[in-house]
Simulated scan of single mutants.
Amino acid sequence: MEQGRIGNLQFTVLAGLFTIGDTVLFVPALIASEALKDAWLSAILALLVGLGIIVFYTVLQRKFPAMTLVEILRQLLGSRVGGFVSLLYVFGFLLLIASTLLREVGDFMETQILPNTPIHVVYMLFLVIVVRAVRGGIETIGRTAEISAPWVMLMLMLLILFVLPESRIARVEPVLYGGIKPVVRGSIIFIAVPFLELAAMYMIFPYVESAERIRRNFLVGCAIGGVLLCLVTFLSLTTFGAVMTKDAIYPSYLLAKKIQLGEFLQRIEALMAIIWLFSIYFKLTTCFYGICLGTAQAMGLKEYKPLAFPMAMILIVFSDLIAPNIIAFFAINQVYVLATGTFAIALPLFLLLVARFRGSALGGKSGG
């Protein structure tokens, strides 16, 4: 069904771009709403836990290196039950993530960049290139990510360097003034976005050239992306303070507005918005690829590419239904954490237990 392959470097940068994704734009505000001045500690805690989750993902991958999660489900649970659970994974997890990503793109462009443009026009324009990439196959996605990643990383590093003069450590003091509980609560959303969402990479694992190096490359890509997110969170707090960071919908976009070097470098937030659209594009494309491929595998189809256009139409509908407005959209965090946790942690853990049980049963029969 998928004959393409991506290299180790391409997988690493794709994991890094997925980690940065939409997270860099709004998560500092969500963390600050729980942990206030200690939101940077929440980010560090979430990064450490998130890297542990990455290792957990690769445990199942190493048991079934040549299979996507949908194929693993059909292998362990049978074609009927496994196919049904696979569709739950595709439409209850991958489609949920993709819908939120597309909605974020639409809301951001409508409120910040193109206020007079209908949101559905933004949806369709963005999905044109997503559908084109998915129909091109995994190699197209991997090569494009490899070309784009240096520019995304460079612009984020420039954002961090240019904003440093505005940063004041006093704005995050005293440390742990509210205790450890707010820090833990703040880390939960950062764990869910993006680390639980990275379970979407199960649909890509079999197409990486060196299966035995996936764990290391996965950790490297996610660690780079996670460190950059921690730095952006810290800078948001030390530049604006906890209250303003909490109240801002897009703190990192506001950071870009602060950049001003003399009379020749200023008002570059539009460029930062473009870079952010690159990172969210690869995250959405990865999820949309998983939707099309997973649906085809769950239903026993020979090709996944013809599904790209109808799935894009479904994605637009779901993006409208997910929340009535941007305020309500950011208020569904607890439900989102529960949904992603079910498919990212509970489902792989269940499959590991089933695989171990079946292995023991087969071993017992052969021994008898």
Results as ranks from 00 to 15, higher is better:
8 N>A: 03
8 N>R: 06
9 L>S: 05
25 L>K: 06
29 A>F: 02
37 K>H: 15
47 L>G: 03
50 G>C: 05
67 M>A: 07
74 R>Y: 00
75 Q>V: 09
79 S>M: 00
81 V>I: 15
92 G>R: 03
93 F>I: 08
104 E>K: 06
106 G>N: 11
113 I>Y: 07
121 V>Y: 14
121 V>R: 13
122 V>T: 15
123 Y>C: 08
129 I>Q: 12
135 R>E: 08
141 I>V: 14
149 A>E: 07
150 P>E: 08
156 L>D: 06
160 I>F: 03
162 F>C: 04
164 L>N: 11
165 P>I: 07
168 R>G: 07
174 P>I: 06
185 R>A: 02
190 F>W: 12
194 P>I: 14
195 F>W: 13
198 L>V: 07
200 A>D: 00
200 A>H: 00
201 M>T: 03
214 I>L: 00
218 F>K: 03
222 C>A: 08
225 G>N: 01
229 L>F: 12
233 T>L: 00
234 F>L: 15
237 L>D: 11
250 Y>H: 11
252 S>W: 07
258 K>F: 11
259 I>L: 03
268 I>D: 09
271 L>G: 10
271 L>Q: 03
272 M>V: 05
273 A>F: 14
284 L>N: 05
287 C>V: 09
288 F>A: 06
292 C>Q: 11
309 F>R: 04
311 M>I: 12
311 M>R: 10
311 M>V: 09
314 I>V: 15
314 I>W: 11
315 L>F: 01
317 V>D: 06
319 S>Y: 02
325 N>G: 14
334 Q>F: 04
335 V>W: 09
339 A>E: 11
342 T>N: 04
348 P>Y: 10
362 L>W: 08
364 G>S: 13
365 K>R: 14
367 G>H: 14
368 G>M: 09
